[in-house]
Design a protein around this nucleic acid. Structure first.
Lengths: 263, 263
DNA sequence: CCTGTTTATCGTCAGTGCGACGACTAGGAT
DNA sequence: ATCCTAGTCGTCGCACTGACGATAAACAGG
């Protein structure tokens, strides 16, 4: 019974990317306008087929590079983005062309800046939040606008705003990100190399869609040993009193976790 | 750039299964003796290729049925086992034959019984812990014996006791199970439909490989509303004073989580 | 029957961490 | 100077946990 290569079916293997960033107090995801046959003209998650001799993560990193110009440092965060595998979707019929098994990946990029339009974005030639130029049409969309029962706005049942089963993939990617910043230092992947406690807090608030008490948040993140390292450079400007700058510490796990409100 | 079916490579898609059970105070996993070409005679995780029109979960359930006779109730726990997707492994060269992308799944089966040999096992025709008869050779092995730096015994660096990259898949499956029983009611998947608090505690102890305080554990699980439901049937025998019988309650999430010792 | 052993279950107490919230600080804007 | 904004430090009460004592209910032997 085990392993009969003769009965193999012709599978195509692809990677799809849930690329998340925080911009203007909103958690946003990267979508591209489809130019090909199925669902042509519809928005979809960036993705593509895996090369014959290509590793899955390599394929995801390549696609990211092609679509956004971003490079990732897999396992370990440099200035690049965080990349991790999400889940695999292989329903027969999820792609009308052939049997496509797609390995979804989650990418978190530092798109903070928060300073309005000032941010010269991750997408090459375009600003975060705007539409790209000559290249394939690309947009950063607030996930609220794509996910139905997610929070507020109007209640839609399942309008399926994205091509294929990308709604579901996006939803699971967002869930993963929301869950993971609870107990890990992953939220710093949304921040530039040096950031303030307030900026980090605004990341949590954007990802979770809640308001956090600045004082308790400050106590929590500065009180966890190894989580944040002050860079000495004590200043920065965001509005009020200048804040201390921090860099991510060695601790990747947050224990006890950051508690997400709501019950 | 996106989607060029013409450049597809010939992929084979498989499912591999990390099947876990608790028996005799040990967390065990199901391994089968390979009878085919690569790594013939070596132990491996059960698995096989996905059918042309078969869903990934369906393929995993089918493989489980073929190898163990167990049926699963995906999403929602009846008397069947718990099944969830783990991760996908697609390194070129992980299988010497062709490019095989394998979607690993995690299966938790109720193999308690604890009453020595009395348990008539999940593996058809065989007893949990023993070797199968005429069918493909199957064994329940304590994960300690397969995972290196996991805990005690001798320190081996990377003997690779299983075929392919199954060591790594097993390790990640065990990690997932260990992490998930912290904040969910998943541990009850290792228990029969009705169980005592002590039996549930022994599951946690076996999976985590630690000793838990019976009194604090009892307070925790009985104090969390909706987690356990007393069946009324107040009795059972395990040694000392008879214990109350419980069934899993509606609550699938454990908040605050069960804390795993060690620091 | 009495005693020791085993497991279950109830309580107590101190320490930790969190939510709520007051108070003070240090810049920019008016 | 005054207001506004954001950052940072403290305090108080509560919930939960870990350590651990005590009692209860079965069984095995003598």
């Amino acid at each position: 019974m085990p392993f009969e290569p003769s009965v193999q079916a012709p599978f195509a293997v692809a990677v799809d990317l849930v690329v998340l960033a925080v911009h203007r107090s909103a958690l946003r995801t990267l979508v591209v306008r489809r130019g090909e046959s199925p669902d042509r003209g519809r928005w979809a998650l960036p993705g593509g087929f895996v090369g014959a001799q290509e590793d899955l993560e390599a394929a995801a990193a390549r696609e990211l590079k092609e679509k956004t110009g971003l490079s990732v440092h897999v396992a370990g965060n440099g200035d690049g983005a965080h990349l991790e595998q999400l889940a695999t979707y292989g329903d027969p019929g999820r792609d009308p062309r052939t049997r496509v098994v797609s390995v979804a990946h989650l990418v978190l990029v530092s798109g903070l800046g928060e300073g309005q339009e000032s941010y010269t974005g991750v997408v090459r030639g375009s600003v975060l939040g705007d539409v790209a130029g000559g290249e394939p049409e690309v947009r950063w969309v607030p996930v609220d606008e794509l996910l139905p029962g997610d929070s507020e706005t109007h209640r839609r049942s399942a309008p399926s705003l994205l091509a294929f089963d990308h709604d579901r993939i996006l939803a699971e990617g967002v869930d993963r990100a929301r869950a993971k910043i609870e107990y890990s230092s992953l939220a710093t992947s949304f921040c530039p190399p040096e950031f303030t406690v307030g900026e980090l807090r605004r990341v949590y608030e954007a990802v979770w869609g809640v308001a956090l008490d600045p004082r308790n948040f400050h106590r929590k993140v500065t009180g966890t040993p190894g989580f944040l390292v002050p860079t000495g450079g004590t200043t920065s400007r965001q509005g009020g009193r200048p804040a201390q700058l921090f860099r991510m510490g060695g601790a990747t796990l947050l224990n006890p976790p950051m508690l997400r409100p709501e019950a």
